[in-house]
């Protein structure tokens, strides 16, 4: 170790400043978020089965409703309810499916309601397909071009639960004209409680 007062040299300062600059440059140029945080998004359409590694996901049906009814409760939409029926088939082990979110064409996001027997999450094990109904209250201008994003990881805190994990994004297939008619329709949907998925007839059985 050298003794005496340490000098501030041009060389030393340059080394420090250069190091800091290089570090900043690295942090800003290398897109860390995309490396560390981007989920593996699997895209599909209604009726398609998506392979999310930990589960097979199928959005079986998309409906709209002004009123949702279950045996204990009726819920009225502030906008209109988008009712998304989906089946989960776990492929690795017992899994909780926490993420459910609709994104509209503008990028606004909507979360499901737990009113009137609708689910906001699901649990399933391998060996069977589990049917769940998600209900999202959305405004009129959110219908056209909306997509639903379902995953085992939650979407709160900027999809923190889905980092480096698969998420299914399904186009609801609502065009601008569809949106108009869907908005004007005054449907009532009787929700089904989650259960084993069967090749069900159109509509709800109970």
């Amino acid at each position: 170790m050298r003794h005496g007062r340490r000098r501030i040299t041009w060389k030393g300062s340059l080394l420090v400043v250069g190091g800091v600059v290089a570090g900043c440059a690295l942090v800003t140029t290398v897109p860390q978020e995309t490396v560390v945080e981007t989920p593996f998004v699997v895209e599909g359409a209604v009726g398609e089965t998506l392979d999310l590694t930990y589960a097979d996901l199928t959005v079986t049906e998309v409906r709209v409703a002004d009123t949702l009814e279950s045996f204990s409760e009726a819920a009225q939409a502030g906008g209109t309810f988008v009712v998304v029926d989906a089946t989960w088939r776990a492929t690795q082990g017992a899994t909780s499916f926490v993420g459910a979110e609709i994104t509209d064409a503008e990028g606004r996001t909507f979360w499901p309601t737990d009113q009137a027997g609708c689910s906001t999450s699901a649990k399933a094990q391998p060996g069977y397909a589990w049917h769940v109904t998600y209900c999202f209250d959305v405004p009129k201008d959110a219908l056209a071009g909306a997509t639903v994003r379902l995953a085992r990881g939650g979407q709160t805190e900027e999809h923190a639960g889905q980092r480096r994990d698969a998420a299914g994004v399904v186009d609801l297939g609502i065009s601008a004209e569809d949106a108009k008619t869907l908005w004007e329709a005054t449907e009532t949907v009787t929700t089904e409680s989650p259960g084993y998925a069967t090749a069900r007839a159109e509509g709800s059985e109970e």
């Binding site: 690795q92 082990g93 017992a94 391998p126």
Partner: peptide
């Protein structure tokens, strides 16, 4: 293939 059935 390592799938665990009925664990929960």
């Amino acid at each position: 293939d390592g799938t665990r059935y009925g664990e929960a």
